[in-house]
Design a binder for these strands. Structure first.
Lengths: 183, 183
DNA sequence: CGATTTTTGGTACATTTGTTCCAGAAAGAA
DNA sequence: TTCTTTCTGGAACAAATGTACCAAAAATCG
C-alpha cells in the first residue's frame, strides 16, 4: 500500500525515521508496529497501514539506510587518506548506533530473503566506495577495512582520526616483509 | 541455579545443545524457553529451572560456543597455510549456520552487557589463534582475515579451500607495490 | 531408615505481539 | 456539489512469551 497523497508520503517518511531510531536503540528485535508507531507519535493502525508486516518495516529501513550511506560515500569523490579516516571515524563513533544497526540488518538479511536485495545493494555500494579498483592488492585492502570497521564498532579502537589514518596507512601501504610462515 | 547432581548436569548440557541448534536455525530472536525446551525434548519448566532468564540461555550458549571454538583453533598449533584455509572453509561452509549464529551473538553482546564478557573471550581467543604476533603487519593481516570471514559468510566466496588459500596468501604475503593514492 | 534438598512436570497468568476489521474523516476526481 | 478513493483512529482477537507457582518424584545426606 504505497501512499498516493502528499500527506501519506509525509507520514510514511515520519514512520521510517521512527523505524531507524527504534532500530538504533534496540536492534531488529525491537522493531514492532507498536514500537514504531509510538516512536513516531502516530496510532498503531498508521504503522500497519503503511507497512503491512514487519519485513516491510525492515526492508524499507535498510533501503533508506543504504541510500543515506551511498550519499555519504558519494560526497567523498577521490578522497585523501585523512578524509577517509574522518569518514570512518564519524561513522563508527559519532554514528555508532546507526552503524551497528546497519550491520545487524545485514546479518538479518542472511536469514530473511526479503531483506536480501536491499542488503546486496548496501554491500555493493560500500565496496564501490571503498575501492573501485579490482586487483588483488586492493581486494585485500577492502577486506582489511571491513575488518577494521568491525573492530572499531566492537572495541572502539582505534578511537581517533589519527589512529584510524595510521591503520589505513598500514593497510594500504604496508611495511615491507612477509608475515606468514612458509607453508 | 547450577545443577548439583550428575543427572542435572547432563540435562543442562542437553538444553545447551538445544540452545545452539535453535540459535543456528533461527537466530537470537528464536531463543525462547519454550523453543529450547521443545528442541531438547524436555518440559518448559526444565528450561526455566536451569536457565532463569533468556540472557542466561544466551550467555551460556556463547560460552559453550567459545569453548568449542577455542578447542577447534587450539588443535591447529603452528598450522600451514593450507591447514588454516581448510579450517576457515569448514567453519564458514560446513558449519555456516554455526558461524553466523556466533557472529549474531557477538553483535548482540554490543547491546547486552551480560553477554559482554563471553564475547570478549571469544574475540580474544580468535585473535590469538589467528595471529599471536603483534607487529603492524600481522595486525593488518588479522583485520583482513576478519573481513574475509565476513565476506565468506555473506557471499560464500571464496568457496573452495584453494580459493581461501589464495586469498590468505594475498593477505599474508601481498604482492609488491602500494595501492593507495598519495594523501 | 527418615529428613532434606534437588529436580520434575504441569498449570496458570499477565504482557506483548502480529494481524484484522470497520466506521468515519479527509482528500481528490467528476 | 457528489462520488470515490485514500487515510485515520480505535478496538479486538488469537497466539506466543516471560515468569511464577506448586505438589509430587527423585536424589542426596544424616
Amino acid at each position: 500500500m504505497p501512499p498516493s497523497t502528499a500527506k501519506g508520503e509525509a507520514r510514511r517518511s515520519v514512520l521510517l525515521d521512527a523505524v531507524v531510531r527504534v532500530l538504533e536503540r534496540g536492534g531488529p528485535g525491537a522493531v514492532t508496529h507498536r514500537a514504531v508507531a509510538a516512536e513516531a507519535g502516530v496510532p498503531l493502525a498508521a504503522a500497519t497501514y503503511y507497512f503491512a508486516n514487519i519485513d516491510d518495516l525492515l526492508v524499507s529501513a535498510l533501503r533508506r539506510a543504504t541510500e543515506q550511506q551511498v550519499a555519504l560515500f558519494a560526497d567523498l569523490a577521490d578522497p585523501s587518506l585523512h578524509d577517509v579516516a574522518r569518514l570512518l571515524h564519524d561513522w563508527t563513533h559519532a554514528n555508532r548506533a546507526s552503524a551497528i544497526a546497519q550491520y545487524e540488518l545485514l546479518f538479518l538479511a542472511m536469514r530473511r530473503d526479503t531483506l536480501r536485495e536491499a542488503a546486496d545493494l548496501w554491500y555493493r555500494s560500500l565496496e564501490n566506495a571503498l575501492g573501485p579498483r579490482h586487483d588483488r592488492r586492493s581486494r585485500v585492502a577492502a577486506l582489511a577495512i571491513d575488518g577494521l570497521l568491525l573492530r572499531m564498532l566492537w572495541s572502539g579502537e582505534p578511537s581517533t582520526v589519527a589512529g584510524i589514518e595510521a591503520a589505513l596507512r598500514d593497510i594500504l601501504d604496508p611495511p615491507a616483509g612477509r608475515v606468514s610462515r612458509p607453508d
